[in-house]
Simulated assay, not measured.
Amino acid sequence: MVTIKLGMLHYVIDHVYGAFMHRTKITQPFFSRGWGGHNLELLERIVKQLFPLEVQGQNWPPPLVRPVWKTVWETKTATLREGVFQTPCCHELAAALPPESRTARVAWLVPKNVPPQKMACVVHLAGTGDHTYDRRLRLGGPLVKQNIATMVLESPFYGQRRPFLQRGARLLCVSDLLLLGRATIEESRSLIHWLDTEEGFGKMGVCGLSMGGVHASMVGSLHPTPVATLPFLSPHSAVVAFCEGILKYGTAWEALREELAAEKITMTLDEVRERMRNVLSLTDVTRFPIPKNPDAVIFVAATDDGYIPKHSVLELQKAWPGSEVRWVTGGHVSSFLLHNGEFRRAIVDGLDRLEWKESW
Results as ranks from 00 to 15, higher is better:
45 R>L: 09
103 T>Y: 00
263 E>N: 12
197 T>S: 15
83 G>W: 02
124 H>V: 09
5 K>D: 11
107 A>R: 08
65 V>C: 06
121 C>S: 11
26 I>N: 10
236 H>G: 01
156 P>Y: 01
62 P>M: 11
270 D>I: 03
248 K>H: 03
258 E>V: 03
74 E>V: 03
86 Q>P: 02
215 H>T: 15
46 I>N: 14
81 R>D: 07
92 E>I: 00
187 E>T: 00
182 R>T: 13
239 V>M: 13
147 N>H: 12
64 L>H: 08
102 R>T: 07
304 D>C: 10
214 V>M: 09
292 K>T: 07
11 Y>D: 04
244 E>R: 10
151 M>H: 08
122 V>W: 09
147 N>D: 13
359 S>G: 00
153 L>M: 10
214 V>A: 07
67 P>K: 06
260 L>P: 00
295 D>F: 04
51 F>G: 08
357 K>Y: 03
155 S>R: 05
198 E>W: 00
9 L>R: 09
354 L>H: 10
234 S>W: 02
353 R>C: 02
78 A>I: 00
304 D>T: 08
211 M>L: 15
299 F>S: 09
85 F>P: 13
95 A>I: 02
337 L>E: 10
173 C>I: 04
142 P>S: 09
130 D>F: 06
41 E>N: 14
78 A>T: 02
267 M>H: 08
192 I>M: 15
182 R>V: 15
88 P>I: 01
341 G>N: 12
29 P>Q: 12
184 T>H: 01
29 P>L: 11
156 P>K: 02
170 R>A: 14
313 V>P: 02
102 R>D: 09
223 H>S: 15
31 F>R: 00
151 M>D: 14
84 V>R: 15
